[in-house]
Amino acid sequence: MNVVVRPPRARATARLPVALALAVALPLALAGCADPEDGGTEPASENAGGQAQEVNLSPDQDRVTTEAVPEIAALVPEEIRERGTLEVVSTSGTVPPLSFYATDDETVIGVETDIASLVADVLDLEVTYHVVDWANIFVGLDSGRYDVGFSNITVTEERKEKYDFATYRLDNIAFEARADADWTVTGPEDVAGRSIGVTSGTNQEAILISWSEQNEAAGLEPTDIRYFQNSTDYYLALSSGRLDAYLGPSPSTAYHARVTGETRIVGTFSGAGDDIQGEIAATTLRDNGLVEALHAALNEAIENGSYGEVLARWGLSDEAVEASEINPPGLPPTD
């Protein structure tokens, strides 16, 4: 499903009708905890001053916006400029605070949507959001159906063979276990013989496979890697004891642990492995001419402060980048 949203010069709401049935246990503790009487907000974290930081979980997002910059908009390929829309693809809205459902159970909100909206503002384009599962992000980019993915996509060396990247956030991953877990993860040996959940096709999967292979080579037990495609399923597996931990994006795991109190983080690592700090990036088909415009638009948002406002409202200021980069070193191939 998709919806066209005109980048406003005043704050506005983007509504995404999503035709995905969601039997919600987690997202939503989130949406479920928000009180419609107070506009759908809840305390999400504490800032340095010790005051609770509220997150707007309603469909009326009052998003941070920024002004169009004509010289940056001129970098957009002619076909897209003539069309007047930026076709943005993201996953199905089940992972707060990255991308998840608002209190109406239809509108997808989160930091990924907000950053994509800022880019469209700078480029003076309307933004059309397409909500699909993870695998279909790349299928749609390959076919040219979508212009760019904003979906917590990590830069990897393998992906760079097909896609161009403009970075906009640090990528950290975390092991989330039940709140009563009495173990921590400091390296590969700590997941030997344990059942760990992960989503297929992610850099988390690549790292977990690599760690399991290292353990086997050292004479330790392999990791029992189990695959999940949505948060409802892996949190049910965690709560029932069928999983020892789930390895996912640090923002979403930390957010869930903080909001529910049912889990805790037992280890955090770079999403690109031991030697490289992973980075999340706007992802577009290689050599299609769009990456320079995305890169310039992201840097404009960083410099004018709107980017910092977006990260702050979702409690992700510690994942800010000083500047967007094009195709930096990424997670190395697993073979």
Rank of each mutant, 00 (worst) to 15 (best):
M1N: 06
V3Q: 14
V5R: 13
V5D: 13
R15W: 10
L16A: 10
L16E: 12
P17L: 01
P17M: 01
V24G: 09
L26C: 04
L26P: 14
L30V: 09
C33L: 14
A34K: 05
E37P: 01
P43Y: 01
P43M: 01
E46A: 10
A48L: 12
G49N: 13
E54V: 06
L57F: 08
L57I: 08
Q61W: 04
T65Y: 14
T65Q: 09
E71G: 03
A73G: 15
L75V: 03
E78K: 15
I80D: 02
R81L: 11
E82K: 15
R83N: 11
V89I: 15
S90I: 06
T91F: 12
T91L: 07
T91E: 12
V95P: 00
P97L: 05
L98N: 15
A102R: 04
A102I: 01
A102Y: 04
E106Q: 15
E106N: 15
V108M: 12
I115E: 04
S117P: 01
A120F: 06
A120V: 07
L125N: 04
L125Y: 05
V127F: 02
Y129L: 07
V131P: 00
V132M: 04
D133L: 06
D133Q: 05
G140K: 11
G149M: 05
N152D: 12
T154R: 04
T154S: 11
V155M: 06
E158L: 11
D164P: 07
R169G: 07
I173N: 09
F175D: 05
E176W: 02
E176F: 04
E176M: 15
A177G: 09
R178N: 13
A179E: 12
T184A: 10
P188G: 01
T199V: 02
T202R: 13
T202Y: 10
E205F: 06
S210L: 08
E213R: 15
E213V: 11
E216L: 09
A217V: 00
A217M: 06
A218E: 15
T223R: 03
F228P: 03
F228D: 02
N230K: 10
T232I: 09
Y234L: 09
L236D: 06
A237Q: 10
L238P: 06
L238H: 07
S240Q: 11
L243V: 02
L247E: 11
P249Q: 15
P251D: 08
S252I: 03
A257M: 02
R258W: 02
R258Q: 14
V259K: 12
G261W: 05
R264T: 14
V266K: 08
F269Y: 12
G271Y: 04
G271L: 06
G273S: 09
I280K: 01
A282E: 12
A282V: 13
A282L: 13
V291F: 14
E292G: 07
H295C: 01
E300D: 15
I302W: 08
E303L: 04
N304I: 01
N304T: 01
S306F: 00
S306C: 00
V310D: 12
R313C: 03
L316Q: 14
E319C: 03
V321K: 04
V321W: 03
V321R: 05
N327F: 11
P328L: 10
P328C: 10
G330V: 06
T334I: 14
D335W: 12
